[in-house]
Amino acid sequence: MKITAQAEKTTPVTASETKIALDILWHVIVLNDPVNLMSYVVTVFKRVFGHNHETARKHMLEVHENGRSLLWSGQREKAEAYVHTLQKWQLTATMEQDG
């Protein structure tokens, strides 16, 4: 009885935590640096996110003029993969939780 009760109690909590984790939005942010070339940053955005030239250019200018640009939002695992890839390209990238 006790084990069953624990199981009944535990299962919904786990499910709830999973749901919350999936519901949380993570943002992939690229920060400005004075070293990387504009053309380089545009190329990286095209290759990593599949952006067309205008979109990549818009984000590059946001980084350059505002110091940061939000490149992507979604689940944590994919955000981590994007940040890791951007860091391999030597960009200063980070992820932030929504809210």
Partner: peptide, 19 residues
Amino acid sequence: LASLQSLILIELDPSCEEF
């Protein structure tokens, strides 16, 4: 190194020439 990068980037993506 910036010059070398620029030359390669233009070859990889000619639209980068605008920068």
